[in-house]
């Protein structure tokens, strides 16, 4: 067996697969997952179809809207599922008093984490695969390209990976499954929803003097929702939510020849002063981040990189906390004393 396969197939993965798929919970979770996604898709479609009958003139982009709601909803479901899959990974072994039995084997502690991660991520991937048939229906309506689907799934998987690693880190650190579960959900909600909520509460203030288009606050790139919306809309995400212009002193500013700016639908901005003169129009196009620390990056690229960084940090924390006897590298290099 090659070392690559050995790395991916450690005994823990096999054991986790066995015990996970033998419970009634897994097929139930899979069924509920598919039903929820299919249900939302159907509800969206029927409501759009009904609305469209009333105004038969315009033909909205069915496929695009449907796709946007489905990928975001899928991300929400993954956010709800992943912590439950990993928050018990290490702590349940501690609670069941099986972890010492693993520590005394030749499986290094890192492989325990790796095995647990691989097993839970496989389940997430399985869920994503289950949703593929539903997503393929979206293609019937058109308006969505294959690369949009692939990028969306990439963002979702990487986010699931980060959430899974956060769950494992809490599971290693907190020792009690209940505490680890609560902490993992808090972490997951903070990462996925909290960052967006933060962006909505503290949006980017449009600077009238700026010559570059405004970008959403960088912290919102942490949330996979932002790139998913950007990919589906094929444009700037959540304009008017993450980018806003608050009239500095209310209408006083306008009365006193202040400048008023407003974001454009494509992520740009237009400013005008109360004297009637129209200021510069700066527009942002496409799904690239127009300014800020990740300027010119695609939203999904920024999110994937940030999520991977968070995941890597969580992985390192777990790997540091898990071993029963912490052997720091500089201590390991001490020459071994030959004993009699």
């Amino acid at each position: 067996m090659s070392s690559v396969i050995a790395a991916f197939w450690n005994p823990i993965v096999a054991k986790e697969y066995r015990s996970r798929m033998r419970t009634w919970r897994s097929p139930l979770a899979m069924m509920v997952y598919v039903l929820l996604i299919a249900g939302l898709g159907y509800a969206m479609f029927s409501s759009m179809a009904r609305a469209n009958n009333a105004f038969s003139g315009s033909v909205p982009n069915y496929g695009q809207t449907l796709f946007k709601y489905l990928v975001v909803f899928q991300m929400v479901l993954i956010t709800l599922i992943t912590p439950a899959l990993t928050a018990g990974a290490i702590s349940s072994e501690r609670e069941r008093q099986t972890i010492d039995l693993l520590f005394v084997t030749r499986i290094p502690p890192f492989s325990i984490i790796w095995g647990k991660l691989l097993a839970s991520m496989s389940f997430v991937v399985l869920l994503l695969l289950l949703s593929v048939p539903i997503f393929s229906l979206v293609f019937l309506f058109g308006g969505i390209e294959l690369d949009q689907v692939l990028y969306s799934f990439l963002v979702t998987i990487v986010a699931a990976l980060a959430l899974g690693l956060i769950g494992i880190a809490f599971s290693t650190w907190l020792r009690r499954t209940l505490a680890a579960t609560v902490a993992s959900y808090m972490g997951a909600f903070l990462l996925v929803f909290g960052t967006v909520a933060f962006g909505i509460i503290f949006p980017t203030q449009i600077d009238p003097k700026s010559t570059s288009p405004p970008a959403p606050p960088a912290v919102t790139y942490l949330s996979p929702i932002v790139p998913l919306v950007a990919i589906a809309d094929n444009g700037q995400p959540l304009v008017n939510y993450l980018i806003r212009y608050d009239y500095p002193n209310g209408f006083l500013a306008i009365q006193n020849r202040g400048t008023v700016c407003k974001p454009l639908g494509n992520g740009g901005m237009v400013c005008s002063s109360s004297s009637g003169a129209v200021g510069p129009v700066v527009t942002a196009t496409g799904t690239a981040i127009p300014s800020g620390p990740f300027v010119k990056w695609q939203y999904w690229q920024a999110t994937v990189v940030l999520q991977l960084a968070i995941g890597l940090f969580a992985l390192l924390v777990s790997a540091f906390l898990l071993p029963p006897v912490r052997r720091l590298p500089w201590r390991r290099q001490r020459p071994a004393v030959v004993s009699e």
Partner: peptide
Amino acid sequence: PDFFGVYDQLTVGEYLDFYGAC
């Protein structure tokens, strides 16, 4: 160890095989 647990959903044979693999 003095206290230890076993995994659910595994048979006796699989349990030993798992540790053998470990």
